[in-house]
Structure formats: structure tokens, C-alpha cells
Nucleic acid binder design. Sequence first.
DNA 1: GCCGTTTTCGGCCCGACTGTTTTCAGTCG
Length: 576
Amino acid sequence: MNKKDVAHLLEEIGTLLELKNENPFKVRAYHNAARIINGLIENLEELVANGQLRSIKGIGEGLAEKITEFVRTGRLPYYEELKKSLPPGLEEMLAIPGLGPKRIKALYDTLDISMIGELEYACHENRLLDLEGFGIKMQENILKGIEQVRRHSEKHLFPTALEAAESLLSEISRLKGVIRSGIGGSLRRRKEVIGDIDILVSARPAEAPAIIEAFASHPDVEHVTAKGETKSSVHLKSGINADLRVINDKEYPFALHYFTGSKEHNIAMRSLAKKRGIKMNEYGLFREPSDKLIPCADEEGIFRLLGMSYIPPELREDMGEIDAAIAGRLPELVENNDLRGTFHCHTKYSDGVNTVGQMAAAARVLSWEYLGIADHSQSAAYANGLDAARVKTQWKEIDAFNGTSKGFRVFKGTETDILPDGTLDFPDKVLSGFDYVVISVHSKFKISEADMTKRIIKALKNKYATMVGHLTGRLLLSREPYPVDVQAVIDAAADYGKMIEINAHPLRLDLDWRWCRYAKEKGILLPINPDAHNTDGLRDTWYGVGTARKGWLEKKDVLNTFTAAQVEKRFESIHQ
DNA sequence: GCCGTTTTCGGCCCGACTGTTTTCAGTCG
């Protein structure tokens, strides 16, 4: 039983209660608790065993009791009863834009509709028109919404969304009357997948309508879903929804903060402001009761006024950043410029397209001092994995390169398969010749969580294993992670003094940022690895830096910020 | 459901937009 299971349970209870039209504050308490448990840096099972759940802010008597029962017995009758009381299709109906719990409940109570398919059929038969609060327009929008749910996933990969947002922004920022403009939302917070794009513009009020109009009629727009005086929402041809908000320039910092979110962070911030006698919204901070605006030149000013240090957007998830900012204990997040190199890159030897020399040259362009090459091992036939003989050829080439290149070092690494039985794909005699060994699962995904966890931990125990590669094997929006007890692997890595990579490929971003803090607290060093298969791929480390920052990691927590000499020393100490 | 420098009950963030209404409820972020 780990925190992910508990968080998932609480999340679902929240949703079910929502569908039952329960007290919205009760609903929020469950969703809040899910997020809090998810972000826990302490060991949940220990907290339960010691009866310390109540000491967590947001976990009261009721939740502590339910969590304890679930952790101890693996079951929660309260949840099971709740689940049984509602038809299973209702939850997926929440995905339809414009349909919330109230309307879904009305549809279920009066028309007995409990699945998307039934709803679609009822719309075609005009059966929604008789319902109070529903009309012809709503029926049309529901059909459109069903279409949208089926056609597009609601989430988009970070690079796809970023590209679409920058395309919109570059046009909008050039419009007449635009003073400041920027991207907010989950993109600015560097989430691993993106729901929609938020663009913010400041301009004189007289210019706002033209800016809104230009946005709504942009060539990337498929259709407009809302258009008001200060705000518009559109659906892009790429399948992504985008929102634009236009405000006047003195409101820009407040709107930027508001529009960056997260929603939960905003709620907590407003609640804090209120305690300080200040009303906070997207237009400003207002001293109550006079409602007098307290001006701020930028976002930094807002935090300063509320008596806290500046919270970088990546941390704004209401996962402890507000208390830390008040106490002046925010981490100094790692930055892209702190990196001096990276590990886990592929070359022509296996499934990469560039040579060792080309990869090293590209790394130098990024002002790096070293590069780790980690081609596939012999069992990875699909990726042209290297056998021991080819490994030796590559070592010679790297030695020759290092012999002539001043001020730049190539490390000899390997991405060695973790075989189904938990042994590694090279004998120790070969492994001992590498500077470092990335161990990854590339086969036999469909085993039980217990077996997969045992398999990886056994591999990690090998004295030559340096770091775990893409721990869960997930491919965002396309392949679920294989079952593995992440917490148990982190604990084992901490025990053995090993590392866990942050695979920076934008499809992976694995280790997930939600686990980074826990790993850091356990004293684990996390390398940021691009899993590059060509020279351009090296730049993917930037995505990994986003993950590290979201995971509260500082320079000292990331192996890539070490000098080549420090890296070498660390590798040696692990393999002794 | 949770919480408390207004502390065991009565609050709980705040505003824009839509579609249905004719003053507002529901949804969204």
C-alpha cells in the first residue's frame, strides 16, 4: 500500500461525492487530501503506524480514520458502498465540457442516463429539451462535447502545447495596443502533460475587443467556445483548447499569478490573503474593507506584500510551497545553466543516429564539460544492443577521443537491460569496465507489481548498477507505466546508495516530479538524462530540468551539476 | 470533509461566461 493508492482512492471518493451533489467543501476536502497525500515526503505507512496522520494539515479525524483503515486492511467499505450507489458511467460523463455534477445528476435522476452513449442517443431524440435548465443550445453543445471527448484526448504533450502556445503568442504580442503578454497555466508551471493553453495580455481597455477578435479569428482556431469582453476560449485545430484574457497593464502581475494557477494554489493564496485582511483576485490585492488597490509592479511584489518569498511557477501546486515561502524555506531550484553534462545518450553503436564524436561536439555547443554515452546492451536486439566485443570497440574509440580532447570528457556508460529474473544483461566482468551503468526494464512488462519491484531492486543491488533508467516505463498519453512500487525502489536505492534518473524525454519525464521530493529527502542523487538518440535530443534535458524543479530539486540534488572530476569520484564510490 | 490570534460552530476564494431565464444556476478555471 503506497501513497499513490491512497491518493487515488481519496480522489475518486471526492468525484463520487461530487456526483452525489454532496457539500462542495466536503468534496474539496477529499480532493485536497488526495493532493496532500500524493506530495507527502514522509513515509505514509509510518505515519499511519504511529498515529500521526492528524498532524498533517488538511487531514482531520474523518480522513485519518478512513486512510488508516484502508492502509491497514487494503479496503474501505465506505468507498465500496459509495461506488455501488452510483452507476459506473457517470464519472466519464464529467469529461464532457459544460457538464458538471449537477446536470449529470439531473440527467440520471429524470432520464435515467448513466453513460455517454445513452446521453448521445437522448440528445438526438431531443429528450433533453423537457428538462428544466436545459435547452436546444445546451443539447447541441453536449453533442459537440461528446464528439470532442471521443476525437481528442483531453491532455496534450508538453512540447506540442508549448509550440501551439508560442505560435499564438508570437502573433498576439505583435498586435496593436498589446503592452505585456505571456503564457500562464500548466505550461508555465511545467506540468508533464497540458490540459489547455492560457495566454495573458495587457492592453488599454479600448484595444481589448480588437485583440479578442484577432485571437478568436486566428488561423489556428477551429471554433470559438466563448467570447466576452475580456476573455475568450477557443478550440484549436491541433485539438488543444486555448484561453485568452485581456486586462489593463496595472492588473497584469495579479492576472499572471491568477492565470498561472494552480487552482489549488490560488485558493490557498486567497485564503492566506484573507487572513491578512486582504482580498485577492485576478485584478489586484485590495485592502479590506476600503477595497483600495495595493499596487504591485510584478509577481514578486505580490508575494512580498503577503509576507512570503517568491514562489517559482513550477512549485505552485499547493503542495507545501506556501508554508515554505512564509517560513523562508523554499528550495533554490536547479536551473538549466547549472548543468555541466548529461548521461544516458545513444549513438550509432546501438539505436542512435550520431557518432560518439558528433554527440560530444553537440554537447560542447551546449557549453557542457562532459557527456555520458550509454548504448543498449546485448539482449536489446530490437535496438541493436552491443555485445561484449562491440563494447570493447566503443571503449577504444572513447579512450582515443578523451586522449585528444582537452577540457571535455566522455564517460563510458551502458544502458543495460534488467532481465526478467532481475539479473543484468552483462556479466560483472564486462560491467566493471564501464564508468557507470544505467539499468532499465525493456521487456516483460506484464508481471505483477510485486515481481517487477523485486526484479528492479535485485538489479539495483548489483554492485555495478549506478542508476535506474526510466523507472516506470511510462509513455505519457500512450503507454501506462508498468506496475512497480516506486516508493520501495526509491527506498532500496537510498539503502544501496544508488541513483534514479529523471528521464527527460518529453514522452517519459520519469521519475515523475511527484516522487522527486521523496527521493531527495531520502538523500538520493538524481541525474537528468535526455535518453538522446541524436544530437538534437540532448536539448531534451531542458524538459528534465522542469521535472526536477517541480520536484523541489536543488543544484546539489542533481548529478549533472557536478564537475567531471566530482562525477567520476561519485561513480567510483558507488562501485566500491 | 477541515479548521481555529473571531477556536468546537460557522464559515470555507473569486469572478467570467453561457444558457436559461427575466434574476440566476451551473460550469470553469
